[in-house]
């Protein structure tokens, strides 16, 4: 993968070692809160683009590419994101940390 070009985040995440759990470790507690949320910092501050805009102002999430930083939980102004550590060793496995 040549680095002198834009690399979509999905492709960059693909360079990681993963053991993805089918059961998500992220949950949006109340989608209504997202609809009312103007700033939606999760869309900008999640390093893995786990959060994307849905229709009608909602927020969609995918847990598969989560790098487990916990940013979403901290920046959500409405405390609407439940974020846990993945169970039983699942998730990303950093080799270079």
């Amino acid at each position: 993968m040549s680095m002198e070009r834009k690399i979509p985040i999905e492709e960059r995440l693909n360079s990681n070692a993963w053991d993805v759990d089918e059961r998500p470790h992220i949950r949006i507690k109340d989608p209504d809160q997202c609809r009312k949320c103007d700033s939606k910092p999760c869309l900008y501050l999640c390093p893995a683009r786990c959060y994307t805009p849905g229709s009608n102002g909602t927020v969609l999430f995918s847990h598969e590419g989560c790098v487990e930083c916990g940013t979403c939980r901290v920046v959500c102004p409405n405390d609407a994101i439940e974020w846990n550590y993945p169970r039983s060793g699942y998730g990303v496995q950093f080799r270079f940390g």
């Binding site: 693909n14 360079s15 990681n16 070692a17 993963w18 053991d19 496995q93 080799r95």
Partner: peptide, 9 residues
């Protein structure tokens, strides 16, 4: 089997 975690790695 002790395998390589994901093939793209």
């Amino acid at each position: 089997k002790a395998a390589v975690p994901n093939i793209t790695a």
